[in-house]
Simulated assay, not measured.
Amino acid sequence: MTENRNKELSKSLIETLTSSNLPTIGSDIAEVTIDSVLKEGVLKDFPIIGSLVGIWKTGIAVNDYRFLNKLLLFLQESSTISSVKRENLIHKLEDDKYQLEAGEKLIAVIDKLETGSKAKLLGKALALFGNDFISNDEFWRVSFIIERLPMADIIALKNWRNTDLNQVFEIRRHLYLSVGLGWFVLDASSTGFCWQERLCEIFEQHLIVQ
């Protein structure tokens, strides 16, 4: 995704998240296609959809179909945040220290996600942040994990409490360590590899529940 396109979508995503009526997004996301958006004006009241339509007039790539699906699943899961809380959502997400643009970061993450299932997890994580269940730092750490870990390894976190990280298959353990879900304790009382309990709890209790 080009830088100009990213910035345009970033601005419209912020507007969509903060001022649109997200709960009106239907449950039949899988039936929404680019053709239906272009021809029927489906979801036309959402600024991010309007921006996408403008971009697609110059030509539609295969990746655009995947991006639309992931975006809608993300927005659908985010819709549990009340309109009042969504007004300040983006400001709370931004990191003033590094002057990072939250909308632009979200677009970049959504674009890189492998599947719609991951987009739903990201939307759930945003809802947790918007409803004050997790902090700014925890949201971005969780989004990093969702982006980088294979879905099978994310789902396996449901049983982390009953799993000794030292006994986890080496490749999977390396992945968990690389995204901050565990570390190696170097002291006299060390038990070796240990879980990052707070992050594991977020996935277990809120993101991958049945």
Rank of each mutant, 00 (worst) to 15 (best):
175 L>K: 12
154 I>F: 10
174 H>A: 08
148 R>D: 12
193 F>W: 04
181 L>R: 01
191 T>H: 14
185 V>N: 06
182 G>I: 00
145 I>D: 01
194 C>F: 03
157 L>S: 04
189 S>W: 11
173 R>G: 07
196 Q>A: 10
165 L>H: 06
145 I>F: 04
154 I>N: 08
177 L>A: 01
143 S>Q: 09
166 N>R: 12
145 I>W: 02
173 R>K: 06
177 L>T: 02
162 N>S: 11
193 F>I: 05
173 R>P: 01
178 S>A: 12
183 W>C: 12
167 Q>A: 08
150 P>E: 07
174 H>Q: 08
193 F>G: 05
182 G>C: 00
161 R>D: 15
169 F>S: 07
170 E>C: 09
161 R>H: 15
189 S>I: 13
178 S>K: 11
185 V>T: 05
178 S>N: 11
161 R>N: 15
148 R>T: 11
166 N>G: 14
163 T>R: 02
192 G>T: 09
185 V>S: 05
188 A>H: 09
142 V>T: 14
167 Q>N: 07
153 D>V: 08
191 T>Q: 15
186 L>Y: 10
151 M>H: 13
172 R>K: 09
191 T>C: 13
174 H>L: 07
196 Q>T: 14
144 F>W: 00
153 D>G: 04
152 A>I: 04
145 I>Q: 00
152 A>E: 06
149 L>S: 03
171 I>A: 15
188 A>N: 13
189 S>V: 13
161 R>A: 13
161 R>F: 14
147 E>H: 06
145 I>M: 02
193 F>E: 02
195 W>P: 07
184 F>L: 15
165 L>C: 07
146 I>G: 01
164 D>N: 09
177 L>D: 02
196 Q>I: 09
158 K>A: 04
183 W>L: 14
152 A>Q: 06
171 I>L: 15
175 L>E: 10
180 G>C: 03
163 T>M: 06
175 L>Y: 10
151 M>Y: 14
